[in-house]
Amino acid sequence: MYTTIPSFITDYENESRSTLKLLDTLTDASLSQEVAPGFRTLGPLAWHLVHKDHGLLTGAGLSFKAPAAESETPASAVSIAEAYRAVTQSILSAVCGHWSDEALEETVQMFGQTWTKGQTLSIFVKHEIHHRGQLTILMRQAGLPVAGMYGPSKEEWSAIGMDTPV
């Protein structure tokens, strides 16, 4: 849970850079990669990180510019990455401009529970990390290289001449 705006800003800037490493690797052809029939494909999964999903932040009273949850997934991987960059900046600006450290202790009703705004921001970041993990699986299935998030990926280990740890 975040108790200060700067702690959220630092963390979200770092996490969004990691997300962008993945989004910038996507290709238009990879957007149709599915894990199994009937499940979300790579394109809509990536787009899920861009649009105002499920009201996590808007439900906590934060207003920022982002595509509507019902918006159609772009067919262009570059468009998804560019939209993510814009939404990330919009979220950072909104948090800095409209919330204070004290506001992070205010409570909101989320999914039938009482959360603080600081808790909501923490869950928002964890939600993105969760979906980033899903992205990496679909990216591997699509034959794309995967960037390391909290340490080197298999490709990055190889690039520095090291055996991949098992």
Rank of each mutant, 00 (worst) to 15 (best):
T3D: 03
G151R: 09
G161D: 10
A36I: 14
L26Y: 02
G97H: 13
P67V: 08
K117I: 00
T19Q: 05
K52Y: 03
F64V: 07
G151C: 11
M110C: 09
T58S: 09
T73D: 11
L23T: 07
A81V: 06
S7Q: 01
Y12A: 00
G59N: 10
I9S: 00
S90D: 08
P37N: 15
H130W: 11
T41W: 14
L144Y: 02
M149R: 12
I129M: 15
E72G: 01
T136L: 07
E13L: 08
L31W: 05
L26I: 10
L26P: 02
R85F: 09
D53T: 10
L31D: 05
T25V: 05
G59P: 03
A68E: 06
A69N: 05
F111Q: 06
E72A: 11
E15G: 01
L121S: 00
I91G: 00
T120G: 11
T10S: 14
E70I: 12
D163H: 13
P74F: 04
T114S: 11
D28V: 07
Y12F: 09
M110T: 05
A75Y: 05
I123W: 15
I137C: 07
E128S: 06
A46V: 14
S122L: 15
L26V: 12
E15F: 01
T10K: 09
E15A: 02
H48M: 06
P165K: 10
H98I: 13
E102I: 13
E156F: 10
V35P: 05
E102C: 07
P165E: 04
G59W: 06
H127S: 08
L104F: 05
S90Q: 07
D53Q: 15
S7N: 03
H98R: 06
V146D: 01
L144V: 01
T3E: 11
P37F: 09
E128P: 02
E13W: 02
M139I: 01
T120V: 11
L42R: 01
V125G: 00
Q119Y: 15
A103N: 02
S7C: 03
L57V: 15
L45K: 04
F64Y: 15
R40G: 10
S18T: 07
K52D: 04
A69R: 11
Q89P: 03
S32F: 13
S30Q: 07
G143K: 04
M162W: 10
S79E: 15
D53L: 15
A69M: 12
S16Y: 06
G55E: 08
R132L: 07
E128Y: 10
F124H: 08
I91P: 01
L23D: 01
Q113T: 12
G43S: 08
T41Q: 11
K65A: 13
F64L: 05
V35K: 13
L138A: 13
M139W: 02
G148F: 04
A69E: 08
I5M: 01
I137S: 13
H131L: 04
T73M: 04
Q109N: 08
S63H: 13
L45W: 06
L26A: 03
A36G: 14
V125C: 00
S90T: 00
I80T: 04
L62G: 01
S63A: 13
G38A: 12
T73Y: 07
K126G: 10
L138Q: 05
L56M: 11
L135D: 03
S76P: 04
Y12W: 14
P165H: 03
A66K: 00
T10I: 07
Q109G: 04
G118D: 08
